Simulated scan of single mutants.
Amino acid sequence: MSSLLKPSFRLAAAAIMISGFVRIGNLKIDAFIQSQYGGHSQYLTIQGLWIAVATMILGVLLSIFSFLNFLRPLRRYLFVTAMPLSVVISSIYWTLLVFFPHLIVASIQQPGAPSSSSEAPAPFYLPLSIDLALHAAPAIALATDFFAFESKYTEKEVRTAVPTIMVAYTLFYSSWVEFCATKNDGNFPYPFLTISPPGVRLLIYAGAGVLGAVSFRVLNSLHSRPQ
Rank of each mutant, 00 (worst) to 15 (best):
Leu68Phe: 10
Asp131Cys: 08
Leu126His: 01
Ala168Val: 13
Gln109Met: 14
Tyr125Trp: 01
Leu27Arg: 02
Val214Lys: 01
Val158Cys: 14
Gly186Ser: 06
Leu132Cys: 06
Thr81Phe: 05
Val60Gln: 07
Phe9Tyr: 12
Val105Arg: 00
Ala106Ile: 08
Ser90Val: 00
Ser3Glu: 07
Val167Asn: 13
Val88Thr: 06
Glu178Thr: 09
Ala208His: 00
Pro226Met: 12
Glu119Val: 04
Trp50Ala: 08
Val162Cys: 12
Gly186Phe: 05
Phe70Glu: 04
Phe99Leu: 15
Pro226Gly: 11
Tyr153Asn: 14
Ser35Glu: 12
Arg10Ala: 10
Ala141Asp: 03
Thr164Pro: 07
Leu68Trp: 07
Leu128Ser: 09
Val167Ser: 12
Ala137Ser: 14
Phe172Gln: 15
Pro226Arg: 09
Glu150Ala: 14
Glu155Tyr: 09
Ala148Tyr: 04
Leu128Trp: 09
Thr194Glu: 06
Glu155His: 12
Ile195Cys: 04
Ile57Pro: 01
Phe149Leu: 10
His40Trp: 10
Ser8Leu: 15
Phe149Met: 05
Asp30Val: 00
Val158Ser: 11
Thr144Cys: 13
Ala136Thr: 12
Gln227Tyr: 10
Val22His: 13
Arg159His: 11
Pro7Asp: 11
Ala213Lys: 00
Arg10Trp: 00
Val60Lys: 12
Leu61Thr: 07
Ile140Asp: 06
Ile130Gly: 02
Leu142Glu: 04
Asp30Asn: 14
Ala181Gly: 00
Leu193Ala: 07
Tyr37Lys: 14
Gly112Phe: 02
Lys6Cys: 12
Ser174Arg: 03
Pro111Gly: 04
Met17Thr: 05
Gln110Phe: 05
Pro127Arg: 09
Tyr37Ser: 11
Arg159Ala: 15
Thr154Asp: 12
Ala113Met: 11
Phe188Ile: 04
Ala213Asp: 05
Val60Ser: 10
Thr45Ile: 13
Pro121Tyr: 09
His223Leu: 01
Ser174Glu: 11
Gln47Ile: 15
Phe21Asn: 14
Ser90Gly: 08
Arg76Ala: 08
Asn187Ile: 14
Ala148Gln: 09
Val200Glu: 00
Ala139Asp: 03
His102Gln: 14
Ile33Glu: 05
Phe188Asp: 09
Phe9Ala: 06
Glu178Tyr: 03
Met1Val: 12
Val177Tyr: 02
Phe9Lys: 11
Leu126Thr: 02
Gly20Asn: 07
Thr95Ala: 14
Ala133Tyr: 02
Glu178Arg: 03
Val53Tyr: 02
Ser117Phe: 00
Ala213Pro: 06
Ser41Tyr: 13
Gly199Asn: 11
Tyr173Ser: 03
His135Asn: 15
Gly209Cys: 08
Ala31Lys: 04
Ile108Met: 09
Gly25Arg: 12
Thr81Gln: 11
Ala120Tyr: 02
